[in-house]
């Protein structure tokens, strides 16, 4: 199948723009793996994805990995799965823990940055780092769905707790 055969019946206005776009994704967990998969399906030209973790069984209720990929680095498993859907996407994957040193090096070329980290600390680090190095970069942030039953994770609950303990 040729590339033009693969990308048939795409939006004539949006698709050419998406093909030119590079999207950075920080984290390949519940948010990042699914975002990457959907953007690959949509026809984004290039994705840059980083994650330090490996696939575990507990990820499989929400992350875009398969049972036979347990133990693989998440970015490696994700690249396999994305390429099975869209062989024409350009993919840069990094099996690293992102920090203030490597984020500017790995993500300097992105048009949009997507924060898909787990911990609030890492989210704040990424936002501060990107804002400092790339002041005009659009950053999309989200909070994920892992372990939602742990009520202490909600801000209103944390505020009530600190108000009472104070």
């Amino acid at each position: 199948m040729t590339k033009s055969e693969y990308f048939c019946e795409r939006d004539p206005k949006a698709f050419p723009l998406w093909q030119k776009a590079t999207v950075g994704i920080a984290g390949a967990g519940g948010l990042g793996s699914n975002i990457a998969m959907l953007l690959a399906r949509a026809g984004i030209g290039k994705l840059i994805v980083s994650d330090f973790d490996v696939v575990s069984v507990s990820n499989l209720n929400r992350q875009a990995f398969n049972l036979d990929q347990v133990g693989l680095p998440k970015v490696e498993a994700l690249a396999q799965n994305i390429r099975r859907v869209n062989p024409y996407i350009e993919l840069d994957t990094y099996n690293v823990r992102l920090d203030e040193e490597n984020i500017p090096k790995l993500y300097h070329s992105v048009d949009i940055m997507i924060e898909a980290f787990d911990t609030a600390n890492a989210k704040a680090m990424l936002i501060e780092c990107c804002t400092r190095h790339f002041p005009d970069l659009e950053i999309i942030c989200a909070s994920g769905l892992s372990r939602l039953w742990q009520r202490g994770r909600y801000p209103d609950h944390a505020q009530r707790k600190s108000a009472h303990s104070g």
Partner: peptide, 8 residues
């Protein structure tokens, strides 16, 4: 002021 909630 954005509240950052953990969860990835």
């Amino acid at each position: 002021v954005i509240h950052l909630i953990s969860g990835g």
